[in-house]
Amino acid sequence: MQDRPEDVPAQPQAQTSPHPGPTTQPTPVPAPQPQAQAQHQPLPQPRPEPAPGPNQGATPTVTYGTAPAYPPAQQYAYGQPPGFPPPPGGKGTAGRAVLWAAVGAVAASVLWAGGILVLGPLGDDADLAGYRAKANLCSAVDYTALRTEYAEEDNLPTHSALKHKAIDQSYCSISLKTSSSSSYADAYLSVEMDLHKTTDPAPEFTAVWSEYAQRYEDYEVEEVSGFGDEAYLVTEDTTSGSGTSGSRAVILAVRDGWMTYQMSWSTYSSSYGTTTPPEIDEVSRWVKTDTRSTLENLRPE
């Protein structure tokens, strides 16, 4: 051993212990931060929500790291978490729409059924007065009286028909010739019959035919009896004094129950050439006679 100089302090010698143990004053070790902890061990799985109770508002105890924001974020298998309204356009909206549509349909059915029970049928039974629709109305038209003037029979009359749950319509058009020498028709005859099966035509029929002269100042209207429930004779005469220009027309409109009928005759003076067409009064008598027999053919009872 060497002698140390007097001015150098002595160095402390390290103490050894046969058994390791804590030091007298241990150095405090800082608590691990959440970030470092996440690197070494997995985060715990989210716990299920506790049942509502008196302490529901209390902050839950955090076991690992710092306390997370409350409530913790959770993944729900079906849309929004329970207790929250569904977003617009999501499955919840469609479900509610279907539900309300079903409720509306049931309510409408109940109201409709209630209306039927309270009000009864929507309309009365159709009063067709025994008339039957014809697919070929021309086969039932009788114009014997008119053939006093028009001897030549039309072998090719035109006809049409319409059949519907609301109305049946039949129509016939006949060309009238005074003789076989006539190259063209001297006059025209048309017949129409309508069977109204869902609505009563009476108000509209009266309005149209009783006020027919409002549409054309040359027409005259006369209500006639002896034909169904009501009938109107409509006439027009625009011929000059010589009868070689202008036109003449006769229409007889009849309503019998919910059946409506019209027979119309018309001619132009130019069609007769040097002769004059028959007078309005005379044609009116022919049309009335032929209407009566035709209506009988349309009601076979």
Score class of each variant (00 low, 15 high):
Thr206Val: 07
Asp186Lys: 00
Lys197Ile: 14
Glu192Val: 14
Thr206Leu: 02
Lys177Ile: 14
Glu204Asp: 11
Thr199Asp: 12
Ser190Gln: 11
Ser183Asn: 09
Thr199Met: 06
Ala185Val: 04
Asp186Tyr: 02
Ser181Pro: 15
Ser180Asp: 15
Ser183Ile: 14
Thr178Leu: 09
Leu189Arg: 05
Ala207Glu: 12
Tyr184Gly: 13
Thr206Arg: 00
Ser183Trp: 05
Phe205Glu: 00
Ser181Glu: 15
Glu192Ala: 12
Ala207Ile: 06
Glu192Tyr: 12
Lys177Pro: 14
Phe205Cys: 05
Met193His: 07
Ser175Cys: 01
Thr198His: 08
Glu192Arg: 13
Leu189Glu: 08
Leu176Ala: 07
Met193Asp: 06
Ser182Arg: 01
Ser175Leu: 02
Asp194Tyr: 11
Thr178Ile: 13
Ser175Phe: 02
Ala187Lys: 00
Ser175Thr: 05
Asp186Ser: 06
Pro203Met: 03
Thr206Asp: 04
Lys197Arg: 08
Asp186Cys: 05
Glu204Ile: 09
Ser182Ile: 12
Ala207Cys: 08
Ser180Gln: 14
Leu176Gly: 11
Asp200Ile: 08
Thr199Trp: 05
Leu176Thr: 11
Leu195Gln: 04
Pro203Phe: 00
Ala202Pro: 03
Ala187Asp: 12
Asp186Met: 06
Tyr188Pro: 01
Leu195Ser: 02
Lys177His: 11
Thr199Pro: 07
Ala207Thr: 09
